[in-house]
Computed example of a mutant assay.
Amino acid sequence: MKIKGIGTISKKEAMSILTREGREAVKNGDITTQELGEMYKLEQVKRACKIGTCGDTFRTCYNRIPESLKEDLAPAQLGLLVDSFYNCYSDAKNGKTD
């Protein structure tokens, strides 16, 4: 399967991020291959950034990225953006100015 910003990966590799229930949902057609690709890419972004394990904080920062960039950029680039948004927030909160 082809994922923008990543390239071509096997469906098996993409499904490796899912639980047993998730794999069943793909097999049953409840999750499309496009949705699977988006989920896989999001997981790669989480792994590429410092705050990927911080659920709410990650989602807040990730949601600031325009959809067109989410689609086109590589996970490492998206991870840098997420971390940058987090750093901006932290700096402002702590009164840092450069």
Results as ranks from 00 to 15, higher is better:
89 Y>S: 09
44 Q>D: 08
16 S>N: 08
88 C>Q: 14
63 N>A: 10
61 C>L: 03
85 F>V: 05
43 E>N: 15
18 L>C: 04
45 V>N: 03
29 G>K: 04
48 A>S: 15
32 T>A: 08
28 N>Q: 15
64 R>N: 12
46 K>G: 05
59 R>I: 08
75 P>G: 08
93 K>I: 09
83 D>T: 02
28 N>W: 07
33 T>L: 15
81 L>Y: 08
23 R>K: 15
6 I>G: 08
12 K>T: 15
6 I>D: 12
12 K>S: 14
66 P>H: 10
56 D>F: 11
18 L>Q: 00
57 T>V: 13
8 T>H: 14
95 G>A: 09
24 E>Q: 14
40 Y>E: 02
50 K>E: 10
10 S>W: 00
6 I>N: 05
26 V>I: 06
1 M>K: 04
63 N>C: 08
6 I>A: 02
7 G>K: 04
76 A>T: 14
98 D>N: 11
76 A>I: 14
84 S>G: 11
61 C>S: 13
34 Q>S: 11
79 G>N: 06
81 L>P: 00
23 R>M: 10
64 R>Y: 12
20 R>S: 14
39 M>Y: 01
4 K>W: 14
91 D>W: 12
69 L>S: 09
34 Q>V: 12
30 D>K: 11
73 L>V: 04
15 M>Q: 15
43 E>Y: 07
82 V>R: 01
36 L>Q: 01
35 E>K: 10
15 M>D: 03
22 G>K: 02
83 D>K: 05
39 M>V: 05
66 P>R: 06
43 E>I: 06
94 N>D: 08
19 T>P: 00
61 C>Q: 05
36 L>G: 01
54 C>T: 10
6 I>V: 15
2 K>V: 09
20 R>K: 14
53 T>Q: 11
20 R>W: 13
11 K>S: 14
30 D>Q: 12
82 V>I: 09
2 K>C: 06
3 I>A: 01
7 G>Q: 05
89 Y>W: 13
98 D>I: 10
62 Y>S: 04
60 T>R: 12
1 M>Q: 07
60 T>H: 12
17 I>W: 00
4 K>Y: 15
95 G>S: 05
75 P>M: 02
21 E>Q: 15
49 C>K: 01
14 A>Q: 02
42 L>R: 12
71 E>N: 07
84 S>Q: 12
78 L>G: 01
30 D>T: 07
78 L>C: 01
3 I>T: 03
33 T>F: 13
35 E>N: 10
70 K>L: 06
92 A>E: 07
13 E>T: 11
